[in-house]
Simulated assay, not measured.
Amino acid sequence: MTTHVGFKPWIKRFPAASPGSGGILVFPHAGGAAAAYRGLATAFAARGTDAYVMQYPRRAERLSHPAAATVEELAQDLFDAGDWSGIAPLQLFGHCLGAVVAFEFARIAEGHGVDVQRLWVSASEAPSAVAASPRLPTTDREVLAHMVDLGGTDARLLADEDFVELLLMAVSADYQAFNRYACPPDVRVHADIRTLGAHGDHRISPDMLTKWQVHTEGRFTRDLFEGGHFYITGHAEAVAELIRAG
Protein backbone atom coordinates (compact mmCIF):
# COMPACT_ATOMS: atom_id res chain seq x y z
CA MET A 1 0.00 0.00 0.00
CA THR A 2 1.33 3.43 -0.96
CA THR A 3 0.21 7.02 -1.37
CA HIS A 4 -0.06 8.61 -4.80
CA VAL A 5 1.58 11.92 -5.70
CA GLY A 6 -1.12 14.56 -6.07
CA PHE A 7 -3.67 12.63 -3.97
CA LYS A 8 -4.64 13.15 -0.36
CA PRO A 9 -2.62 10.81 1.90
CA TRP A 10 -5.80 9.10 3.10
CA ILE A 11 -6.46 7.71 -0.38
CA LYS A 12 -4.91 4.26 -0.01
CA ARG A 13 -3.26 3.05 -3.22
CA PHE A 14 -2.48 -0.58 -3.92
CA PRO A 15 -0.32 -0.56 -7.08
CA ALA A 16 -0.79 -3.28 -9.67
CA ALA A 17 1.71 -6.13 -9.78
CA SER A 18 2.25 -5.38 -13.48
CA PRO A 19 1.61 -2.21 -15.47
CA GLY A 20 -1.97 -1.74 -16.62
CA SER A 21 -4.38 1.03 -17.49
CA GLY A 22 -7.03 2.75 -15.43
CA GLY A 23 -7.79 2.26 -11.76
CA ILE A 24 -10.48 0.86 -9.52
CA LEU A 25 -11.77 2.96 -6.64
CA VAL A 26 -13.18 1.21 -3.57
CA PHE A 27 -15.90 2.84 -1.45
CA PRO A 28 -16.39 1.18 1.98
CA HIS A 29 -19.66 0.41 3.76
CA ALA A 30 -21.10 2.58 6.53
CA GLY A 31 -18.61 2.79 9.37
CA GLY A 32 -16.03 0.90 7.32
CA ALA A 33 -12.40 2.01 7.29
CA ALA A 34 -10.08 1.62 4.32
CA ALA A 35 -8.13 -1.10 6.14
CA ALA A 36 -11.13 -3.43 5.95
CA TYR A 37 -10.73 -3.57 2.17
CA ARG A 38 -7.03 -4.39 2.05
CA GLY A 39 -7.70 -7.97 0.94
CA LEU A 40 -10.01 -6.94 -1.90
CA ALA A 41 -7.70 -4.13 -3.03
CA THR A 42 -4.72 -6.51 -3.03
CA ALA A 43 -6.71 -8.95 -5.16
CA PHE A 44 -7.48 -6.18 -7.67
CA ALA A 45 -3.83 -5.13 -7.80
CA ALA A 46 -2.71 -8.72 -8.34
CA ARG A 47 -4.85 -8.77 -11.48
CA GLY A 48 -3.25 -5.73 -13.06
CA THR A 49 -5.36 -2.81 -11.85
CA ASP A 50 -4.24 -0.11 -9.42
CA ALA A 51 -6.71 0.00 -6.52
CA TYR A 52 -7.53 3.15 -4.54
CA VAL A 53 -9.46 2.70 -1.29
CA MET A 54 -11.38 5.70 -0.03
CA GLN A 55 -11.11 6.76 3.62
CA TYR A 56 -14.21 8.57 4.90
CA PRO A 57 -14.12 11.22 7.65
CA ARG A 58 -14.49 10.30 11.35
CA ARG A 59 -12.20 7.24 11.23
CA ALA A 60 -8.53 6.27 11.19
CA GLU A 61 -6.29 9.19 10.15
CA ARG A 62 -9.41 11.23 9.31
CA LEU A 63 -10.81 10.93 12.82
CA SER A 64 -10.77 14.70 13.34
CA HIS A 65 -12.24 15.51 9.93
CA PRO A 66 -15.85 16.70 10.15
CA ALA A 67 -18.47 14.27 8.94
CA ALA A 68 -20.13 14.95 5.61
CA ALA A 69 -23.73 16.04 6.12
CA THR A 70 -24.93 14.30 2.96
CA VAL A 71 -23.90 11.47 0.65
CA GLU A 72 -23.41 14.02 -2.13
CA GLU A 73 -21.07 16.05 0.08
CA LEU A 74 -19.07 12.92 0.91
CA ALA A 75 -18.77 12.01 -2.77
CA GLN A 76 -17.57 15.53 -3.57
CA ASP A 77 -15.02 15.35 -0.74
CA LEU A 78 -13.61 12.14 -2.21
CA PHE A 79 -13.61 13.48 -5.77
CA ASP A 80 -11.69 16.56 -4.62
CA ALA A 81 -9.01 14.33 -3.06
CA GLY A 82 -7.08 13.89 -6.31
CA ASP A 83 -6.86 14.30 -10.08
CA TRP A 84 -8.85 11.25 -11.10
CA SER A 85 -8.65 12.13 -14.79
CA GLY A 86 -4.96 11.24 -14.60
CA ILE A 87 -5.73 7.58 -13.90
CA ALA A 88 -8.90 7.18 -15.97
CA PRO A 89 -10.67 5.14 -17.25
CA LEU A 90 -12.10 4.37 -13.82
CA GLN A 91 -14.03 1.52 -12.33
CA LEU A 92 -15.84 2.11 -9.05
CA PHE A 93 -16.67 -0.55 -6.46
CA GLY A 94 -18.93 0.29 -3.55
CA HIS A 95 -20.30 -1.96 -0.83
CA CYS A 96 -23.64 -1.14 0.83
CA LEU A 97 -23.64 2.62 1.59
CA GLY A 98 -20.42 2.79 -0.43
CA ALA A 99 -22.34 1.86 -3.59
CA VAL A 100 -24.54 4.95 -3.29
CA VAL A 101 -21.48 7.11 -2.54
CA ALA A 102 -19.80 5.62 -5.62
CA PHE A 103 -22.90 6.39 -7.71
CA GLU A 104 -22.77 10.05 -6.66
CA PHE A 105 -19.00 10.07 -7.27
CA ALA A 106 -19.65 8.74 -10.79
CA ARG A 107 -22.14 11.55 -11.44
CA ILE A 108 -19.59 14.14 -10.32
CA ALA A 109 -16.77 12.52 -12.30
CA GLU A 110 -18.81 12.29 -15.49
CA GLY A 111 -19.85 15.92 -15.03
CA HIS A 112 -16.15 16.83 -15.03
CA GLY A 113 -15.38 14.78 -18.12
CA VAL A 114 -13.68 11.92 -16.25
CA ASP A 115 -14.22 8.54 -17.94
CA VAL A 116 -16.02 6.11 -15.62
CA GLN A 117 -16.41 2.76 -17.37
CA ARG A 118 -18.22 0.69 -14.76
CA LEU A 119 -19.89 1.04 -11.40
CA TRP A 120 -19.78 -2.20 -9.39
CA VAL A 121 -22.62 -2.16 -6.87
CA SER A 122 -22.33 -4.55 -3.94
CA ALA A 123 -25.15 -5.36 -1.49
CA SER A 124 -26.96 -2.05 -1.86
CA GLU A 125 -30.43 -0.80 -2.59
CA ALA A 126 -30.85 1.47 -5.61
CA PRO A 127 -30.49 5.24 -5.15
CA SER A 128 -34.12 5.84 -6.09
CA ALA A 129 -35.27 3.37 -3.42
CA VAL A 130 -33.41 4.92 -0.49
CA ALA A 131 -35.85 7.70 0.40
CA ALA A 132 -38.76 5.26 0.76
CA SER A 133 -36.78 2.69 2.75
CA PRO A 134 -36.88 2.51 6.57
CA ARG A 135 -34.63 5.10 8.21
CA LEU A 136 -31.38 3.80 9.63
CA PRO A 137 -31.05 3.99 13.43
CA THR A 138 -29.38 6.97 15.07
CA THR A 139 -29.12 6.15 18.78
CA ASP A 140 -25.97 4.36 19.94
CA ARG A 141 -27.84 1.28 21.15
CA GLU A 142 -29.87 0.94 17.95
CA VAL A 143 -26.85 1.56 15.72
CA LEU A 144 -24.83 -1.12 17.49
CA ALA A 145 -27.71 -3.61 17.27
CA HIS A 146 -28.03 -2.89 13.56
CA MET A 147 -24.32 -3.46 12.99
CA VAL A 148 -24.46 -6.78 14.87
CA ASP A 149 -27.43 -7.83 12.74
CA LEU A 150 -25.55 -7.06 9.52
CA GLY A 151 -22.49 -9.01 10.63
CA GLY A 152 -19.03 -8.22 9.32
CA THR A 153 -17.64 -6.98 12.66
CA ASP A 154 -15.54 -9.28 14.83
CA ALA A 155 -17.44 -10.00 18.07
CA ARG A 156 -14.20 -9.68 20.03
CA LEU A 157 -13.83 -6.09 18.83
CA LEU A 158 -17.38 -5.31 19.91
CA ALA A 159 -16.33 -6.19 23.46
CA ASP A 160 -13.72 -3.39 23.36
CA GLU A 161 -15.34 -0.19 24.64
CA ASP A 162 -12.79 2.08 22.96
CA PHE A 163 -13.31 0.37 19.62
CA VAL A 164 -17.09 0.55 19.94
CA GLU A 165 -16.91 4.27 20.72
CA LEU A 166 -14.93 4.94 17.53
CA LEU A 167 -17.13 2.60 15.49
CA LEU A 168 -20.30 4.36 16.62
CA MET A 169 -18.81 7.75 15.73
CA ALA A 170 -18.16 6.62 12.17
CA VAL A 171 -21.35 4.61 11.65
CA SER A 172 -23.62 7.31 13.07
CA ALA A 173 -22.11 9.92 10.75
CA ASP A 174 -22.63 7.70 7.72
CA TYR A 175 -26.17 6.68 8.71
CA GLN A 176 -27.25 10.28 9.20
CA ALA A 177 -25.94 11.22 5.75
CA PHE A 178 -27.70 8.21 4.23
CA ASN A 179 -31.00 9.11 5.92
CA ARG A 180 -30.91 12.50 4.19
CA TYR A 181 -30.40 10.99 0.74
CA ALA A 182 -32.96 11.02 -2.05
CA CYS A 183 -32.57 10.40 -5.77
CA PRO A 184 -35.22 10.39 -8.53
CA PRO A 185 -35.44 7.24 -10.68
CA ASP A 186 -34.61 9.16 -13.86
CA VAL A 187 -31.10 10.07 -12.66
CA ARG A 188 -28.61 8.00 -14.65
CA VAL A 189 -24.90 7.62 -15.25
CA HIS A 190 -23.32 6.73 -18.57
CA ALA A 191 -21.20 4.02 -16.93
CA ASP A 192 -22.31 0.40 -16.95
CA ILE A 193 -23.77 -0.77 -13.65
CA ARG A 194 -22.87 -4.28 -12.50
CA THR A 195 -24.57 -5.43 -9.31
CA LEU A 196 -23.22 -8.03 -6.89
CA GLY A 197 -24.91 -9.62 -3.92
CA ALA A 198 -25.41 -12.79 -1.94
CA HIS A 199 -28.17 -15.39 -1.82
CA GLY A 200 -28.19 -15.26 1.99
CA ASP A 201 -28.24 -11.47 2.45
CA HIS A 202 -31.31 -10.79 4.59
CA ARG A 203 -31.01 -7.04 4.07
CA ILE A 204 -30.54 -6.68 0.31
CA SER A 205 -32.51 -9.07 -1.89
CA PRO A 206 -31.72 -9.86 -5.54
CA ASP A 207 -34.83 -7.88 -6.57
CA MET A 208 -33.46 -4.83 -4.76
CA LEU A 209 -30.25 -5.11 -6.75
CA THR A 210 -32.22 -5.28 -10.00
CA LYS A 211 -33.72 -1.85 -9.30
CA TRP A 212 -30.31 -0.32 -10.03
CA GLN A 213 -30.99 -0.95 -13.72
CA VAL A 214 -32.92 2.32 -14.11
CA HIS A 215 -29.83 4.33 -13.14
CA THR A 216 -27.59 3.46 -16.09
CA GLU A 217 -27.58 4.38 -19.75
CA GLY A 218 -25.16 1.53 -20.31
CA ARG A 219 -25.11 -2.19 -19.68
CA PHE A 220 -26.59 -3.78 -16.55
CA THR A 221 -25.82 -7.17 -14.98
CA ARG A 222 -26.43 -8.97 -11.69
CA ASP A 223 -24.28 -11.69 -10.09
CA LEU A 224 -24.90 -13.51 -6.82
CA PHE A 225 -22.50 -15.28 -4.47
CA GLU A 226 -23.02 -17.57 -1.51
CA GLY A 227 -23.00 -15.89 1.89
CA GLY A 228 -24.60 -12.98 3.69
CA HIS A 229 -24.40 -9.20 3.59
CA PHE A 230 -20.61 -9.24 3.92
CA TYR A 231 -20.10 -12.06 1.43
CA ILE A 232 -17.03 -10.24 0.03
CA THR A 233 -15.03 -11.29 3.11
CA GLY A 234 -14.92 -14.85 1.80
CA HIS A 235 -15.07 -14.10 -1.92
CA ALA A 236 -12.50 -11.35 -2.47
CA GLU A 237 -10.59 -13.35 -5.09
CA ALA A 238 -13.74 -14.34 -6.98
CA VAL A 239 -15.05 -10.76 -6.94
CA ALA A 240 -11.71 -9.44 -8.19
CA GLU A 241 -11.66 -12.01 -10.97
CA LEU A 242 -15.21 -11.12 -12.04
CA ILE A 243 -14.27 -7.44 -12.18
CA ARG A 244 -11.05 -8.18 -14.09
CA ALA A 245 -13.09 -10.01 -16.70
CA GLY A 246 -15.34 -6.95 -17.03
Rank of each mutant, 00 (worst) to 15 (best):
L74A: 02
F79C: 14
D140R: 11
T195I: 08
A191N: 08
A68H: 11
S124I: 06
E217V: 14
K12D: 06
F225N: 04
E165I: 10
G32H: 11
H202T: 15
V26D: 10
L196A: 00
D154W: 08
P89M: 11
L166G: 00
E241T: 15
E161K: 12
W120I: 14
M1R: 13
E61T: 03
R107N: 06
P28R: 01
P137Y: 01
F178S: 12
E72A: 13
L90D: 10
M147P: 02
P137K: 00
G246W: 07
G39R: 15
E110T: 00
F27K: 07
T153I: 12
P127Q: 09
F178R: 12
A30Y: 11
T195M: 10
D50M: 10
R244T: 15
P19M: 06
A126N: 02
D154C: 04
A245K: 10
F225R: 00
F79Y: 15
H146E: 09
D50W: 03
G23C: 15
T216Y: 01
A43D: 15
Q213K: 08
K12T: 06
A99L: 05
V121W: 04
Q76P: 06
M208P: 03
T70S: 09
E104R: 00
P66D: 02
A129C: 10
F7N: 07
D77G: 10
A145C: 02
F93A: 11
A109D: 01
V121A: 03
A43W: 01
L25D: 08
A109T: 12
F105N: 00
E161F: 05
G23S: 11
K8E: 08
F7T: 12
R118A: 12
E73V: 06
L242E: 15
V214G: 11
V164C: 03
A35L: 08
D207H: 01
G200K: 12
A99I: 07
G86H: 05
D160T: 15
W10R: 02
V148N: 12
F230H: 07
L168S: 01
R203W: 14
T42C: 14
V143H: 07
F14E: 05
T2D: 07
V187I: 15
Y181K: 12
F27Q: 04
E237D: 15
H229C: 12
P137Q: 00
T210W: 09
A33K: 04
D186T: 11
Y56S: 02
Y56M: 03
E142V: 03
A75S: 06
W212V: 00
T139Y: 14
I232Y: 15
V101N: 01
G31A: 14
L90C: 05
L78M: 13
Y181H: 14
S122F: 09
R62S: 06
A33C: 12
G197A: 00
D50A: 09
V189G: 02
W10T: 05
A129V: 04
H146L: 01
Y37L: 11
Q55Y: 04
R188Y: 08
A126I: 06
L196D: 00
T139E: 13
T49G: 01
G111T: 10
D115H: 13
A99Y: 03
R47P: 09
A67V: 02
E217S: 14
Y56C: 00
G218N: 10
A35C: 08
A109W: 08
E125M: 10
T233I: 09
T3H: 06
R222Y: 11
G98A: 04
R107Q: 08
M169G: 10
F103T: 03
A17W: 07
S18M: 13
Y231L: 05
V114N: 04
N179D: 12
I243T: 12
G23P: 04
